[in-house]
């Protein structure tokens, strides 16, 4: 498999009164079609790493390449274009635009990209939502949907432009166990059947153990990369 993401000594320091190190010297490679978990205690830099990988934030030092292209050489417009076409975000909270229906929310990235015609966008949005079990909720606004349904709409929106990379920041963090399992299965299907690369931040060790690889962060540093189910605990050294 070819490398999708490669970082070298990736570092992000917040320049506050007292500088705060969010991530430090992270070097990793993520291949195409990988299902990667990012775990670690609260404040360990998981989300910060995800935001860097998703080009939402800029590193203080180090390099980040997506499909071999150094993202630091991109201007703001190129980074936005890369996010639009190549990266789908799923956050802990759905973050749907509240004034728009489920289908309109999914159509927004497509309309922004402008590759499809109006009818094609509408059809694709409907298909994506139907595939996620939301065929009967196309014209509902977010406040008319349950938490699990909203999160599935968010997943559909992340897939709208068929990006190769899905970044999920605790996508099941605000869901009950049944909805969590549903969303996890959807993410797993994206990797196994659609060939997407999914990088998901999670506190759920059981969920992490079912992914291809786990990146463990402690204090902003990458402490462990594991490819089996023998995983370090969230708050301490590896166990088992």
């Amino acid at each position: 498999m070819s490398t999708l993401i490669e970082t070298r000594d990736l570092t992000r320091i917040l320049q506050e009164t007292v500088p705060v190190t969010l991530v430090k010297d992270i070097s990793l490679k993520i291949d195409e079609r990988e299902f990667v978990a990012v775990t670690g205690p609260s404040g360990s830099g998981k989300s910060s790493l995800l935001y860097l990988l998703g080009l939402l934030d800029r590193p203080t030092a180090g390099t980040l390449a997506i499909r071999g292209r150094d993202t630091e050489r991109m201007d703001e417009g190129e980074r936005a274009a890369t996010r639009l076409a190549n990266i789908g975000f799923v956050f802990q909270f759905h973050f749907l635009l509240p004034e728009f229906t489920a289908r309109e929310n999914v159509e927004i990235p497509m309309r922004k990209l402008g590759r499809l015609g109006r009818n094609e966008m509408r059809q694709r949005a409907s298909d994506l939502l139907a595939a996620l079990g939301l065929a009967d909720h196309l014209d509902k606004r977010p406040d008319q949907l349950s938490g699990g349904q909203r999160q599935r709409v968010a997943v559909a929106r992340a897939l709208a432009n068929d990006p190769p990379l899905i970044l999920a920041d605790e996508p099941t963090g605000s869901l009950d166990s049944k909805s969590s399992e549903q969303v996890f299965k959807i993410l797993e299907t994206l990797v196994r059947e659609q060939g997407k690369t999914v990088v998901a931040v999670t506190h759920d060790l059981d969920m992490a153990s079912r992914m291809d690889r786990r990146l463990q962060l402690i204090d902003g540093r990458l402490s462990t990369q594991s490819e089996d189910a023998t995983l370090p605990s969230e708050n301490g050294p590896p166990h088992g």
Binding site: G54, L56, E76, G77, A80, A81, T82, R83, L84, A85, F89, F95, L96, L97, P98, I108, P109, K112, L113, R157
Partner: peptide, 15 residues
């Protein structure tokens, strides 16, 4: 503000 953040994450630019 949250919508702005989301739209930027989706690929909208500052412009």
């Amino acid at each position: 503000a949250r919508d702005i953040a989301i739209m930027k994450s989706l690929g909208f630019t500052e412009a």
